[in-house]
Design a protein around this nucleic acid. Structure first.
Length: 188
DNA sequence: CTGGTGATGCAC
DNA sequence: TGCATCACCAGG
């Protein structure tokens, strides 16, 4: 394990790509918050539209509001929201500024000072991330995403695809991506 | 399977 | 102003 602060931070151009490419590209990379770090092993894409159909499961589908503002802003920032009154969920903003799109981080493999964190609510708790990080620029400490592999490289494990978990709209769309066989991927 | 918990968006 | 909804999790 190299020194975390020496790992390159993922550049702005990476996040400006289409959301699905950002989602796949985030797999195998490191989330670093202070002295804690984990490797991303499971994500979901939330887009403006997929195959010409509007993604009604995406928070941005109801337009620009105080909560969704950051999703329409410049890429590489954190969208954090509260769900079911208890759990905070971390999303990464993708697409060029003005186009909504974000990636939900669903599970991490522990790297440094992190307990197992399978599931979007558990991982924010484990990393110490909350709504106070809403809009944080992920190119700057203390919360960064750093490359363990080249920005558009392939992780050693195969990337598997499945429907997104826990949603009602667009339930069959294959927008969940995870590292096949990784034991830290969340259960279905 | 169920209940807890509170912000959000929209109907009225 | 009310209320249905919600990208979750722990417990049984």
């Amino acid at each position: 394990m190299p020194e975390l602060s020496e790992l390159p931070v993922l550049p702005r151009e990476f996040y400006a790509q289409p959301t699905i490419e950002v989602a796949r590209g985030l797999l195998g990379q490191a989330i670093v918050h202070g002295d804690r770090a984990g490797r991303i092993v499971e994500v979901e894409a939330y887009v403006a539209s997929y195959k010409g159909i509007s993604d009604q499961a995406a928070h941005s589908s109801r337009g620009l509001t105080p909560r969704t503002r950051v999703i329409f802003g410049p890429p590489g920032h954190a969208y954090v929201y509260l769900i079911y009154g208890i759990h905070e969920c971390l999303n990464i903003v993708a697409e060029p500024e003005g186009t909504p799109g974000c990636v939900l981080i669903r599970a991490l493999e522990p790297l440094v000072n992190l307990p197992p964190a399978s599931g979007p609510g558990k991982l924010t708790r484990a990393l110490g991330i909350s709504r106070s990080h809403y809009g944080h620029d992920l190119l700057h400490p203390p919360l960064t995403i750093r490359q363990l592999i080249p920005p558009n490289g392939r992780p050693p494990e195969t990337i598997a695809t499945s429907p997104r978990i826990g949603i009602r709209h667009c339930a069959e769309w294959p927008l969940r991506f995870f590292l096949r066989g990784n034991p830290h991927v969340s259960r279905r």
